[in-house]
Measured scan of single mutants.
Amino acid sequence: MATGGRRGAAAAPLLVAVAALLLGAAGHLYPGEVCPGMDIRNNLTRLHELENCSVIEGHLQILLMFKTRPEDFRDLSFPKLIMITDYLLLFRVYGLESLKDLFPNLTVIRGSRLFFNYALVIFEMVHLKELGLYNLMNITRGSVRIEKNNELCYLATIDWSRILDSVEDNYIVLNKDDNEECGDICPGTAKGKTNCPATVINGQFVERCWTHSHCQKVCPTICKSHGCTAEGLCCHSECLGNCSQPDDPTKCVACRNFYLDGRCVETCPPPYYHFQDWRCVNFSFCQDLHHKCKNSRRQGCHQYVIHNNKCIPECPSGYTMNSSNLLCTPCLGPCPKVCHLLEGEKTIDSVTSAQELRGCTVINGSLIINIRGGNNLAAELEANLGLIEEISGYLKIRRSYALVSLSFFRKLRLIRGETLEIGNYSFYALDNQNLRQLWDWSKHNLTITQGKLFFHYNPKLCLSEIHKMEEVSGTKGRQERNDIALKTNGDQASCENELLKFSYIRTSFDKI
């Protein structure tokens, strides 16, 4: 039985969820670079991206490699990797027998973001014989899940209580170790020597080791999670996991709180800001991140802002960003909400898709409305799209047979046209069989910064309504002859009103 693990408890099935942008060198404390989270699957090609990484700022997932063999891993080693800020997950990587050479110096898994409450997941690794993470000293947050690894031993010899604050939620089941077939031998045991430290858990006094050649490092209890030197002297209180010299914040392997210019500090002093819960960055760093993602459509890219001495992905609820200094300031009234469309555009074809934009005031991208039916549609669209004030790209209304009016965009005031449909149009209306009105132009103002209007096959939309939009939106004169079809717009509506004058002759039985 794995020490510190839980057996036999019912657990939810383990679901495996399925960018080499360097964020800056980590400095003297770390020998390499800070790398983003990685999802490495199918083959070993991307694994080489770990070569210079000291910190993975995010998670590391290595999974679904069915053609790899043990010899493929023999020359692979990433000794610079010290810390993973989120979680480490391995799933069905064939041929991998140990992690001792792959990650010989991995010391800390912070667990800032977890995989279903777990910071370390080893699942269905069919050839893994031992973990071998002999320098792993601290899992700051989260638990361990090690399950269905039929060859995995050296679990009962690990004292997880020396690595985690609590072992109650560890789930370590259905491994070879369960069948008591392992016969784990710690260093020196074969020669009758006791080389590794022994600890007591559940009444068992057991030597602690990761492999037959690597003991588990056990520091004096007084050192807590700070770690200790090879001689057993406690590291500085700002260290986490390990250090090369005692009581020196510049000799830590990793930091308990924050890293700044080669030393570990309790908090980031001005003019620095907390970033990702582990390091200090200056304003320029946060500003660069903001600008890199301002026009990016890459998933996970955030326009970072500053709030409460932190550089964070977005302002919290009730705050909006001051564009001059990136500071989050309290909103006066309802907060603006910028919604970034991942692929640059979004099609609204149902109430469900409209709900995804609920509360958005600025759309960074283009909207395509293609709704053919739905219950209580006008009210639903207004509830979900009615706060949109600005669209950076274009607005396209296409084959939306259920629409009679666009009044559900009740606050839309600006279409920038930074991206144009077919390279020309910022407003595009095609084949809307029941569209009769755009907006009530006596109450609604709309500016279209650039781009043209396109109207074709809107049989109940009168040309007068379209011409009014040209005047109000500032697009009059931009359109070419064929942009607004004269014969297919309003051709099934009563669009022309003329005053009919009647004269009559009164007659009676005795007068003409």
Rank of each mutant, 00 (worst) to 15 (best):
S161E: 13
R298T: 14
I185L: 07
L88N: 01
P79K: 03
A190V: 10
P70T: 09
P313V: 04
P269T: 14
P269I: 08
C268G: 00
E181R: 05
L120M: 09
C153A: 04
A190Q: 15
M83H: 07
S237F: 13
G192F: 15
H127R: 03
L114N: 04
H302W: 11
C35S: 00
N150T: 08
W210A: 06
C215L: 07
L50I: 07
A254L: 13
L60R: 00
T140M: 08
R141H: 11
R256Q: 13
V34L: 06
V265A: 10
S284D: 02
S77N: 13
M38V: 06
L90H: 00
T45P: 15
M83D: 02
I172E: 06
K217V: 11
Y94L: 15
P271G: 15
K217E: 14
F103K: 00
S112G: 06
Y272H: 04
A230Q: 15
E49Y: 07
P104Q: 01
A119M: 00
G111H: 01
E231G: 15
K80R: 10
H214D: 04
R256K: 09
Y272P: 01
E266W: 15
V144G: 02
M321P: 14
Y304E: 02
V218A: 10
L90K: 00
P270G: 09
E51I: 15
N308R: 11
F275V: 03
N138R: 15
L96H: 01
M65F: 10
I201E: 12
M65E: 13
F283I: 13
L99A: 03
C328W: 02
L102T: 03
T85R: 13
V305M: 09
D159R: 06
K129T: 14
H236T: 02
P70M: 10
N282W: 02
N52P: 14
N282T: 07
D277N: 15
M125G: 04
R74V: 15
P36E: 14
E314M: 05
V305W: 03
C315N: 01
L174S: 13
N308M: 08
T199G: 08
R297T: 06
L136N: 00
E49D: 09
C215P: 13
N295R: 14
I139S: 01
N322L: 14
L88R: 01
C209D: 03
P197Y: 08
R69L: 05
E147D: 04
H236V: 02
F103V: 02
V93F: 07
N42K: 09
L60G: 00
T229M: 12
T320V: 09
T107Q: 13
H236K: 02
C219E: 02
D86V: 00
G227R: 03
S225N: 15
E57I: 07
A156V: 10
N179Y: 03
P31F: 12
D177R: 11
S296H: 10
S225H: 12
H48T: 09
T320F: 14
V218R: 10
K67T: 06
L240V: 05
R46E: 08
N242W: 12
F285A: 07
C153P: 00
T157Q: 12
N149M: 01
H302D: 07
P330E: 10
T194N: 14
N150R: 14
H307V: 05
P187I: 10
E71F: 11
S54G: 01
D277M: 09
E57C: 03
E130A: 07
F258V: 06
S284T: 08
V265C: 03
L233N: 14
D165K: 15
N325Y: 04
Q204A: 10
L76A: 14
I122C: 06
H307A: 03
I109S: 00
G227T: 07
F103W: 04
D39W: 14
P220Y: 06
K148R: 15
K80H: 07
C153H: 04
K310G: 14
D288K: 11
N257W: 03
P336V: 14
I201C: 14
Y171T: 09
E33P: 13
D72K: 13
Q204P: 14
E238Q: 13
V265E: 04
H212D: 15
R263A: 11
G37T: 06
C239W: 00
L102K: 00
F115V: 13
N325K: 03
F91P: 00
C228D: 06
C219L: 03
N170R: 07
G192R: 08
T194D: 06
S54L: 04
P104M: 01
G95M: 03
Q287K: 07
R74K: 12
Q61Y: 02
C182L: 04
C35R: 00
S213I: 09
L131S: 03
I62T: 00
Y171R: 01
P104I: 01
R208E: 05
L44D: 10
N149I: 01
S143I: 03
L233R: 14
R69C: 12
F103Q: 00
V34S: 04
L44F: 11
C209E: 05
L133K: 01
H291E: 08
T221R: 08
L155I: 11
F205I: 06
S317E: 11
I40F: 05
K310A: 10
G232I: 04
N242P: 10
N175W: 12
F78R: 02
T211R: 12
N42E: 14
F123G: 12
S213L: 11
Y154P: 14
L81G: 00
V253L: 15
H226P: 04
N202K: 07
H214R: 05
H127V: 02
L63S: 13
M65G: 05
C153W: 01
T250D: 02
I306D: 04
W210I: 14
D288I: 06
C328S: 03
N325T: 04
Q299P: 12
L128M: 09
E314R: 12
M38R: 04
